[in-house]
Amino acid sequence: MTPAAWGGLLGAVLGAGLLVVAGRVAALRRTQLSVRVLPYVRDLPQVGQARGLRPVPGPATSAAAGVFGPPLRSAADAVERVLGGAASVRRRLERADLDKSVHDFRVEQVLWGLAGFAIAAAYGVLRALTDPSGGLVSLVLCLVAFVTGVLARDTHLSGQVKRRERQILAEFPTLAELLALAVAAGESPVAALDRVVRRSGGALSTDLARVLAAIRTGEPVGAAFDRMAAASGLPLVARFAQGIAVAVERGTPLADVLHAQAADVREAGRRELIEVAARKEVLMMVPVVFLVLPVTVLFAFWPGVIGLHLATP
């Protein structure tokens, strides 16, 4: 190729590269759709997990769901028929703030049961290598492991509910005081709620964000807090929501109500701590009796024993 042709080719490559860089810079400088839209819908619950915004499953996931989905759903339906209690499970899922249906939870129970079954089956295979006559015992053990896995998922859900309720009780006094300060400073209940939700994070803040989203969609303040009181499994939070609803509807001083409820929660926490300490008083004596006291006795008597050995001819 002639030098002129090489120059033209290099110039064309350089021009194409500059066009690509300019296009990329323009794309980066363009404001994203999420930046323009999300500030106006930030109060909607779980906006990032909306059905239209969820990632589309890949081919591997779709294939696995197509192969194992029907058997798992059938097993989940069988577990539902045997155990029942769909209303209780739905209530606990709401209290644990889990975005799952009862059927999804039953599928998870089946998966936990299959995991226990697999562990028991592996143990049975290893045992069969040394004792081939224990097949019936291994089968019974596998069935027990499956049932244990199913019940363990239910117990784990109850534990998730208790952990979230403990978090709510720990956050409640602080959020109630913040709401009281904002209301006492002259803000309306909705504006105070918005300020607290934007500057806090946690389980109770998530519930209050849902209440704020319901209020901004047109639901009355009292009705939104009444629904929160009905959904909550904690009497203190239910009284808090009912107190705010009554204060808003009847015009009673809201700041005094919030201060009083925060003080009630702190007092209830102190009472619970004293009760727990009273129940575990014997357990707290175990290290003293079995660890500290023997060492003290040994330090007290060991020099005398050594002295007797040295004085004895």
Rank of each mutant, 00 (worst) to 15 (best):
F240W: 12
R279S: 08
P287Q: 09
V246Y: 07
L236M: 14
F299R: 11
A268W: 08
S205Q: 13
F225N: 02
P287T: 05
A213E: 01
M228H: 01
A224G: 01
A214L: 01
L273K: 15
V276W: 14
A223Q: 14
L234S: 14
A262S: 10
A260V: 03
V295C: 13
R227N: 04
P235G: 10
G218M: 03
L212I: 01
L293H: 07
M284L: 11
H309M: 13
L254V: 05
P253W: 11
M284F: 13
A247C: 07
A241T: 04
A224I: 00
D256Y: 07
V276E: 15
S205Y: 05
V211E: 02
L234P: 02
D226Q: 07
V265W: 04
A230R: 14
A255K: 03
V211W: 02
H259N: 10
A214I: 02
R227H: 10
M284C: 09
P235N: 08
D264C: 12
A300R: 04
E249M: 07
P294G: 09
E267H: 15
E219I: 08
G218Q: 06
V289E: 07
A311R: 15
A231T: 01
R216Y: 06
F225Q: 01
R270W: 13
F240C: 04
A241K: 04
H259E: 09
A262T: 04
L308I: 12
A278S: 08
E267C: 12
R279V: 06
A311H: 14
I244N: 00
V276Y: 12
T217K: 13
V289Y: 04
V286F: 13
P235C: 11
